[in-house]
Design a binder for these strands. Structure first.
Ligand SMILES: [Mn+2]
Ligand SMILES: [Mn+2]
Ligand SMILES: [Mn+2]
Ligand SMILES: [Mn+2]
Lengths: 225, 225
DNA sequence: TTAAATTTTTAGTCTAGTCTAAAAAAATGA
DNA sequence: TCATTTTTTTAGACTAGACTAAAAATTTAA
C-alpha cells in the first residue's frame, strides 16, 4: 500500500472515532464537522478512500472502515497516544499541551521509530488522558468497568481513569482543581436542577461539578461509603 | 509570519546548505539537483519565497537567503540535528538510520517541543555525524581546526570528528570498519595512483581508504607520530 | 566577437485537496 | 402521503506544487 497523505490519515482516524462511538455507519456531515471542512469535500475524499479500499462507502448512506482502513486508523491512534505519553512523561508537558503536537507527530512514518518509542516508554498501556494505547499489532485493551462520573452512584468512592481530551479548557479546569488521573473522589450528591454533582476529593476539598464536566470524566468504582 | 509548507522549509534549508559551501549565490540548477526536482519548479518557488521576503532572488542570477530566511533555515537544521541526536542517544538508532526520519521530524512545528527536547538531551553540541547543533537563538559553533582526512599530513595522528551524512552506503561502510566519531587514526601513506590513503586505527587494524571515503571524513589533528 | 552550448525562465498542464452553489436524494411531520 | 426541510452529492472553480516543452538569457569557446 502506498503512503497516505496527512489528510487521508486524518479521515481514517476520524471515521474510526465516530464509528467507535455509535458502532455504525458514519455520516458525511458528522465527519465534516469533526474535520472542520465542508460536506462536499468529505464526499470527494470518501470516494477516493473507497477506491483505495480503505472505507466502505455507499452514496447517501455514509461510510465505515474496511479491515485495512481500520488497521491503519489504529496505527495512527497508536502513534498519537505514544507521542502524547512521551511528551508528558519525558518532556514534562502538561496534559493539556500535548494534543496539538501529537496531531503532527502521528503522521511521522517510521515503524522502527514508533516501536522504539514504545520500548523507551516501557510499553505504556494508557496515554495521559487515560485512553488505551494500541499495541504493535493493533490490539486495544479497553478498560473494563469504567463509567462516566455523571452516572456514578451517590455515596460511592471512585477513581478518575479517563478524561475527554477534546477540550483544552476542560483539561485546564481539571488540572486547576486537581482532578487528574488516579485521583479518588467521593460522590456526594446529585442536583436535578442543573444536573450538577458534588464530589469531595479524598483527603481534599468539596467541589460542585457541572454536567458538562461530569460527562467528560470516566471513573472506576472503588467502594461504597 | 505564516506557517511555511514542508516544501518551502526544504527549499530554505537547501539554499542555506548550498550557500554555506560556496558562500555565494545559489543557482537554480544546483537547487534542482539537490531537491530532486526540475529547474522550472525551482524558479516558481524562488519567486514565491522572494515575495515572502525569505530569499533574495534575481532572475538568471540565482538566489540567497534574507536574514529572516536564514533564521528559519537554521531553526529547521536545529530541529533536524536534535532529532537525529534523540534517535541515536535515546532510541538506539544507528547513525545511518536517522536522517530519513529526521527529514520528517524537522517539520514539526512547536517551539516548546524542540526546546524541551534540547534540554532532555542535555544541550548537545553536535549531532551523530559530528555536525554542530544551532542553539535556540540560531548561533552555530563550528568546530575549529577541522580538516578533511584526505588533506591530513602523513605521519600524523588524528581523531574523526565529522562524517558526511549524505550517503547511507558511506555510513554503513564506516560503521563496518569501526570508523566512527571519536576514533583516532594514524595517517600512514598516500598513494597518488588512485589518491587512496592508508591509515591504522589506534589499537586496531590498517585500512586503505579510497579518495571518496577520505573526502567525506573530517578529522582534527592530535599529534605527530 | 560571435556561434553554439548551457542555464534559466515562461507558458501551459496536471493532481490533490479544498471551497461555493446548485441539484438530487432522504428524512420529517402535518 | 406528500410537501417541506435536511442531508448529501455533483459541478465548477481555486491554490499549491509539481511537470514538460518551448523561449529567452547567459556563458563558453572557437
Ligand atoms: Mn490527543
Ligand atoms: Mn490522548
Ligand atoms: Mn541528517
Ligand atoms: Mn546529521
Amino acid at each position: 500500500m502506498n503512503r497516505l497523505s496527512h489528510s487521508e490519515e486524518n479521515y481514517l482516524k476520524e471515521i474510526f472515532h465516530l464509528s467507535g462511538l455509535t458502532d455504525k455507519r458514519v455520516s458525511t456531515n458528522s465527519l465534516a464537522s469533526r474535520l472542520n471542512s465542508k460536506a462536499s469535500s468529505i464526499t470527494d475524499m470518501l470516494q477516493k478512500l473507497s477506491d483505495k479500499k480503505l472505507v466502505k462507502y455507499v452514496k447517501y448512506k455514509g461510510c465505515d472502515l474496511t479491515k485495512e482502513g481500520e488497521r491503519i486508523a489504529i496505527q495512527i491512534i497508536r502513534k498519537h497516544r505514544l507521542w502524547e505519553t512521551f511528551l508528558v512523561s519525558k518532556l514534562s508537558f502538561g496534559w493539556e499541551e500535548v494534543h496539538d503536537v501529537a496531531e503532527q507527530l502521528e503522521h511521522i512514518d517510521s515503524a522502527k521509530l514508533i516501536d522504539s518509542l514504545d520500548r523507551f516508554l516501557n510499553y505504556p498501556k494508557f496515554d495521559p488522558h487515560g485512553d488505551p494505547i494500541p499495541d504493535k499489532d493493533g490490539n486495544i485493551v479497553y478498560r473494563k468497568s469504567k463509567i462516566k462520573l455523571i452516572d456514578a452512584a451517590v455515596n460511592s468512592r471512585v477513581e478518575i481513569v479517563r478524561v475527554n481530551e477534546d477540550s483544552l479548557a476542560l483539561l485546564k479546569f481539571l488540572e486547576r482543581h486537581e482532578l487528574t488521573l488516579g485521583i479518588e473522589l467521593y460522590v456526594l450528591e446529585k442536583f436535578p436542577f442543573d444536573d450538577s454533582l458534588s464530589i469531595r476529593i479524598v483527603g481534599g476539598s468539596e467541589i460542585n461539578l457541572s454536567k458538562k464536566v461530569t460527562e467528560s470524566i470516566a471513573v472506576k468504582f472503588i467502594s461504597k461509603i
